[in-house]
Write a protein that binds this DNA or RNA. Structure first.
Lengths: 236, 236
DNA sequence: GCAAAAGTGTTACACGTACACCCATGC
DNA sequence: GCATGGGTGTACGTGTAACACTTTTGC
């Protein structure tokens, strides 16, 4: 394939297994406070190695799908969900990730909306965990979850991912709740609202959210495209 | 390997080829202005597909090396250089990257110091190009180079990569030249110097660079660690 | 009317930018 | 002495943080 001075004969021997895994984030109300918090779904391993430990959903890459399609597919297959945002996280290829075999995992992270997340499949072998309390996971999946969390927080602070946790219409308070949940801080509603309204990707609709207990907040819409990474770049 | 509801029998069929490629950046004086500019080494393809076109150096992943080691190795093999900085860029896995075969490329980017870059191997089949004037490359390598450039500029602006283009000791003006070359702007020497001196990772030495035409500038040293990505995290 | 959330106004401060100025060296 | 790059001082503008204040709804 590539011209290279490497020993070409080695290639056939090596051929590490290639797998795709996904860290799926959704906001769900905390059991205690009721405020939204970050959750991720994990699958129980049904064979060795790491039998009975929890692991990230994942699977092989099939021949006729792109990497991102493979991530979306195994997300749908394990949780029944359609993600609103998918981005590549990292390719993990350390030598001893799996005790039995050399595996290179290309890991994605995804966001799903809470309306969807509510009707997600949950079973004996698929369960949702609070992202900061996952316990001991199979393989190097604890490190992967940590890194995904770090990336999510980063993207939220500097990018425009927050809206993918929400539906098409949302109030400023809902966006603020997303930030507060993910970054684990409290934000000044006044300043936060002004900042959002000054970003060109946020569009003010004429609608108001009715049925609340207090003054009805205005509804907004997000009109931006997510991506700067190669998979999403071409989308105009 | 992974528990998954995917059709396990498909895996054996699929098995796309896995390759490692690297975008190697070095600063070299421009032919015209003499000011430093960004260059990258490319290798000429000696077979189909894309025979005779230039491509990124790359090769297979061998069994007993990590992804990053593979990147460093093929960097050394094509250019004879030891990189001062290596970071994973992205895993490219589109279906039609190569017309003949399904290939997933895990791409790294690297920086080498100009002292090293000066003695880099150059031959009929390995040549250095200005990063912004590479012409038409094989596969999707133009897109990859563009993305690597974007990342480098980003990391330079927000991170602390600049020092890896330089030796252990450097003057503030040298760092400024790196920024000016990569970001293609002019920066105010006064403000730039103050900013650098206020970053805790920059250490002022007692030494001065002698032999210049004018007032000898103070020499500085960088005392930070590069990384926040998984490969470099554990390094204490 | 009162509680609570939506939304506006105002001020202080940190930080980046622009630019005038002084310092030290080679020729 | 003078040209040139190294280095300091200082004023201005922009954006964020803090917080007082007004508005609008449900009960």
């Amino acid at each position: 394939m590539y011209s290279s001075s490497a020993n070409v004969s080695e290639r056939a021997v090596a051929a590490p297994t290639l797998a795709i895994s996904t860290v799926i984030f959704a906001l769900r109300p905390s059991e205690s406070s009721g405020r939204p918090t970050l959750w991720i779904p994990l699958v129980r391993r049904i064979r060795e190695p790491f039998k009975d430990l929890w692991a990230l959903p994942g699977g092989p890459l099939t021949h006729n799908e792109s990497l991102q399609d493979a991530a979306s597919r195994n997300l749908r297959e394990t949780t029944g969900l359609a993600p609103s945002y998918v981005e590549q996280l990292y390719a993990f290829g350390g030598l001893h990730r799996s005790p039995t075999q050399r595996v290179v995992s290309i890991v994605y992270w995804a966001l799903v909306q809470p309306t969807e997340a509510a009707l997600a499949d949950e079973s004996e072998n698929v369960k949702w965990f609070r992202a900061d309390k996952v316990g001991e996971l199979a393989f190097d999946h604890n490190a992967i979850v940590d890194y995904a969390l770090w990336r999510l927080r980063n993207k939220l602070a500097y990018g425009s991912v927050a809206y993918h946790f929400l539906g098409e219409y949302f109030t400023l308070a809902e966006v603020r709740e997303v930030y507060e949940a993910v970054l684990d801080t409290r934000l000044d509603p006044a300043n936060f609202g002004r900042q959002l309204k000054s970003t060109p990707e946020i569009e003010e609709t004429g609608e108001y959210l009715q049925g609340g207990k207090h003054r009805p907040p205005r509804l907004y819409r997000f009109t931006g495209r997510p991506g700067l990474d190669p998979d999403n770049r071409s989308t105009p």
